[in-house]
């Protein structure tokens, strides 16, 4: 990390940081080491250097939806991640994407949007669940061609509901049920877990104190067919490189 210059990123256009003259009074300059500070602040990684053909996307904290969350939340911003994934698809220098997750979930629609984008990327994708990949992190982690989980990582599977609110009318129950169905549908389509099994885990009453649901730790997620394998960074990167090689060979 350090000072970035346009020479280091020949495939990216020059930083468009000079505004055209004559318009509003501000002018901005790239400050030194922006990326370092960025990681510190938001936990979002950016772009591979030219010799690195792997794009790394980190899904951290809350996945932010249509509302900006208060600043004590670490967030993954979908309005930035989605165009990034479009750029990854279009950029010929990027051969594959590594998705690293340590998330507590978040907005259903934003999470599903990211999952669908990753799922339909034409380039090889590998995910690695570290720490936690809870709730809406589950669809994102299984959206890749190959998914890994470290032995100590956990995934919480629970029903979608609005904390503290009582479902008063039938229509509202239907609405939440439909939303939940979208998640279940995506999971059953993209992993080895069946609809019925996922629902069963969702409504398990024997595991969580304050909620219903299931916590899967490392190997358990693999045994139940949700994640492909237990592994670490090396496994994920190595698999991605192999997939890239196979993709190039075609």
């Amino acid at each position: 990390m350090g000072q970035y210059s346009s020479e280091e990123y020949p495939h990216i256009q020059d930083p468009p940081l000079k505004e055209p003259s004559g318009t509003p009074p501000e002018e901005k300059q790239d400050s030194s080491g922006p990326s370092e500070r960025n990681i510190e602040k938001l936990g979002q990684l950016t772009i591979p250097s030219p010799d690195n053909e792997i794009f790394t996307l980190t899904i951290i904290g809350q996945i932010e939806g249509h509302l900006i969350l208060p600043p004590q939340n670490k967030t993954t911003k979908y309005e930035h991640v989605i165009p990034q994934l479009v750029a990854v698809e279009q950029n010929s220098h990027i051969k594959g994407a590594l998705i690293i997750l340590n998330t507590v979930g978040g907005d259903v629609e934003a999470g599903l949007a990211i999952a669908e984008m990753v799922n339909t990327l034409s380039k090889p994708t590998v995910s690695l669940v570290l720490g936690g990949g809870h709730s809406i992190g589950v669809p994102i982690s299984i959206s890749c061609q190959k998914s890994y989980i470290v032995p100590t990582a956990t995934m919480t599977i629970h029903p979608i509901r609005l904390a503290g609110q009582i479902i008063g009318i039938y229509q509202f129950f239907e609405y939440l049920d439909k939303m939940q169905d979208r998640v279940i549908e995506f999971v059953s389509k993209n992993s080895k877990m069946s609809r019925e099994k996922y629902k069963e885990l969702m409504f398990n009453t024997s595991q969580l104190g304050r909620d219903i649901g299931t916590v899967l730790v490392g190997q358990e997620a693999v045994d139940l067919g949700l994640i492909d394998a237990v592994g670490g960074l090396w496994d994920a990167v190595n698999t991605l490189k192999e997939l890239i090689k196979a993709n190039d060979g075609e």
Binding site: P25, E27, Q44
Partner: peptide, 25 residues
């Protein structure tokens, strides 16, 4: 931005601090 490559630019990521220079028109 309509240029998707801008979204990969490290200097334009959300959270990056930038310097403003005020100019008289």
């Amino acid at each position: 931005s309509n240029n998707i490559n801008d979204y990969l630019h490290p200097g334009l990521q959300p959270g990056t601090e930038i310097q403003l220079q005020w100019r008289r028109n």
